[in-house]
Design a binder for these strands. Structure first.
Length: 709
DNA sequence: CACACCATGACGGGCGTG
DNA sequence: CACGCCCGTCATGGTGTG
């Protein structure tokens, strides 16, 4: 029988820093967690240290929740080994060394050998439901090689077993077969889904709908077989998922709390209760729940999977793959999704979206917990327990990221709420950024001398030429590119036609260009983009910080545009001065041109050891040059790729220095920034997803520091 | 001529605000 | 609803270098 394994959607992601005893290089364990129908993570029920063979990463394997199984496939038939081998395939197309997410395969068996798949071809990765005769859906009768030999029972035995394996109760299956006959599995499944639906409470129905969004559009049809070796690792009976098949499920969840069962399961595999508990805390609790209600897409350009928000991109999800003969299951799901969409739109129109629907909002004014000139709004806050250091951490990114991004970032970073600050309260240029950190917030102090706060003060030579119809007192955000000479030439010619009082439409044209490109007046009718050293000054860097040493002008703009505003960051970090009078050890991720290092130095906080991770050689040169010129007494260690930073190296450095006191990082904003017209893909974008490495490394260091104490 | 490097301009859209 | 804002990217053509 031709059958295909169907990868049924990525359900959950977890990343943890758990060392698997005796297994080298498993610090950066990336987890695979599935959710259950209640939108909760399912506790980890097993560890397969070698499962993914993911370079130096280990792989968790997990069971499948009972309520999920009608949608995702059969927990009873879930084969770890096969799943992990499928993962290998995905890893090969993931392109990145670090893996954030795995696809859980619904175990619809097949007759083809999945190992023959060329995972690097796009065809096999097509996320659209495949058409043609070989395309089967979850609704078709499916028999794996392994089970075929067992199926000697009555004619509907296989059908019953199949649906049993999907987690439906025997009673429901019998009822469905009675209603539909045993030939039409589509109809049976539909009935089963309906029965199950009716049995759920309204709240559960709602969450179930969200859950199912993961499933249809982003499913894969992939060949797979039932490798005999799949059976030789963990037996089904000692895994938790095994006990979840069929009607045992309800009893199972009611007898012991889930986490205790998972603990037992881990303990049975040879880990101490302590280790198991730590693993579970770390992995299960840091799982952001919104991942469960998102669906997955595949970016062909980058060859990577990404999460997409069902709310923002609903139309894509719905209509890009309209095909007449999509399976009944898909039909049901689409109807539900459509229903949900309409509900959501209705709510939105009526303004009924609650706080829960839209949690993190930008404050106005954007002054965070206060600025040097504004009175402190808040001087105390209560941090979530998991966020409390050591180490201190400080994370930065653009404030105006696509919706939901900051919620996700915040959930990963231990539910600390971001502090949004616009640097226009610190200097003459706007820079709206969000900072998530676990630093104290009382007794902050600014760098002295405080930088000029208006354009006139910052660039006094421009004052003479500034027309009264240009009302700007602050510059806009300093970006990575600047206006060209040809542009300012066009503006000059446009102005010269009109003498001293250009008409309103010319004024508007000029002002629009000025705001867009941050132009300043340097002569009569003469505008100019900011010079790189002016940008350095505005951002709080020493003059010539990025100058020379082989860096081009455009690269200077780029590096500066990607940097911190030093005064702003220094104000936040100033509380460290009393805490570390003898200096601190810092791990600086995405260092760029060393904004954090410069800030700490200017605060007078000695830098004992700095491990700086920065991909750009030019930027590393800048920091090294600054390090030497400022006669730093400490050690500067440069690494290039955050993705290659693993537990071994972190443990080594932490051992050398006695741990890290501070972890600073502003991860790439390319895919978040509003000015990106090409690939504003959100947090799962090619560069911005490196945020997860920030979290991964932070979590690893927390883990290491916890052990050292 | 090939090649690397650099400057230039064309290119929307999400989201907040008033 | 109109408006303003935004740590950007890509293809292209020019320039410098061997």
């Amino acid at each position: 029988m031709i059958a295909r394994a169907r990868l049924q959607g990525l359900v959950g992601v977890v990343m943890g820093g758990v060392k698997i005893p005796g297994k080298e290089g498993t610090d950066g364990v990336v987890g695979m967690v599935v959710g259950n129908g209640n939108m909760e993570p399912v506790p980890i029920v097993g560890v397969e240290p070698n499962g993914g063979n993911v370079g130096k990463l280990g792989v968790w394997s997990v069971g499948i929740g009972k309520l999920l199984s009608p949608v995702l496939g059969s927990p009873g038939m879930f084969k770890r080994r096969r799943a992990s081998r499928l993962l290998d395939g995905f890893l090969s197309v993931w392109m990145k060394k670090t893996v954030y997410a795995y696809v859980i395969m619904g175990d619809n068996a097949s007759g083809e050998d999945y190992e023959d798949i060329d995972w690097n071809t796009e065809d096999e990765l097509d996320i659209t439901p495949s058409s043609g005769p070989s395309a089967v859906t979850t609704a078709e009768p499916i028999v794996s090689n392994g089970e075929a030999s067992l199926s000697a029972g009555p004619s509907n035995y296989k059908v019953v077993e199949h649906f049993l394996g999907m987690g439906f109760s025997e009673e429901l299956i019998e009822r469905a077969i009675k209603d539909n006959g045993d030939a039409n599995t589509d109809a049976i499944l539909n009935s089963l889904l309906t029965y199950a639906h009716l049995e759920e409470s309204p709240a559960e129905i709602n969450s179930c709908n969200q859950q199912q969004q993961c499933v249809d559009d982003d499913s894969f049809n992939l060949s797979s077989d039932d490798d005999e070796s799949a059976l030789n690792d963990l037996s089904e009976s000692d895994s938790w998922s095994g006990s979840w098949s069929g009607s045992d499920a309800a009893e199972c969840s009611s007898s012991l709390p889930k986490h205790e069962k998972a603990l037992l399961s881990l303990a049975n595999m040879g880990y101490s209760i302590e280790e198991a508990s730590a693993a579970m805390d770390r992995c299960v609790l840091t799982l952001p729940t919104d991942l469960f209600c998102r669906s997955w897409g595949f970016n062909r350009r980058t060859n990577r999977f990404y999460l997409r928000c069902p709310m923002a991109k609903t139309e894509d999800v719905f209509f890009e793959e309209e095909k007449p003969n999509i399976s009944l299951l898909n039909g049901v799901l689409k109807k539900r999704k459509l229903y949900e969409l309409k509900n959501w739109e209705k709510k939105k129109r009526k303004g009924l979206l609650t706080e829960e629907d839209d949690i993190i909002r930008l404050p106005k004014p954007m002054i965070g917990f206060g600025t040097p000139s504004d009175p402190m709004v808040i001087t105390r806050r209560t941090l979530p327990e998991a966020a409390i250091g050591p180490p201190f951490f400080y994370y930065e990114n653009v404030a105006l990221a696509p919706k939901g991004v900051w919620d996700t970032i915040s959930r990963f970073l231990y539910d600390v709420k971001p502090e949004f600050v616009d640097s226009k309260y610190f200097c003459a240029a706007a820079r709206k950024r969000g900072y998530i950190h676990n630093l104290p917030i009382h007794n902050r102090f600014p760098l002295l001398p405080q930088p000029p706060r208006t354009i006139n003060e910052a660039l006094p030579l421009t004052k003479r030429w500034w027309p009264d119809w240009d009302k700007r007192t602050k510059l806009n955000c300093l970006q990575t590119v600047c206006g060209s000479a040809r542009l300012t030439d066009r503006i000059r010619k446009a102005l010269e036609k009109w003498g001293d009082n250009p008409p309103l439409h010319v004024q508007k044209y000029v002002l629009d260009e000025c705001r867009k490109w941050n132009l300043v007046w340097v002569g009569k009718n003469k505008l100019a983009p900011l010079e790189p050293d002016e940008v350095e000054m505005l951002l709080g860097f020493p003059r010539n910080h990025t100058r020379g040493g082989g860096i081009s002008r455009t690269d200077r703009y780029k590096s500066l545009g990607n940097s911190f505003q030093v005064d702003t960051v220094a104000y936040h970090l100033s509380v460290l001065k009393d805490l570390f009078p003898n200096g601190l050890n810092m791990l600086s991720l995405f260092s760029g041109i060393g904004g954090a290092e410069v800030a700490l130095h200017r605060l007078g906080i000695p830098l004992k050891n700095v491990v700086s991770v920065e991909i750009s050689e030019a930027n590393r040169d800048i920091v090294r040059s600054w390090w030497e010129q400022t006669n730093q007494k400490g050690n500067l260690i440069h690494l290039d790729d955050v993705q290659l930073v693993n537990g071994d190296s972190l443990e080594r450095y932490a051992g050398m220095f006695g741990g890290f006191d501070l972890i600073v990082g502003g991860s790439p904003c390319n895919n978040l920034a509003g000015s990106n017209r090409v690939s504003r893909d959100g947090l799962e974008g090619e560069q911005s997803s490196l945020f997860y490495d920030y979290f991964r490394i932070l979590d690893l260091v927390k883990c290491i520091m916890g052990r050292q104490q």
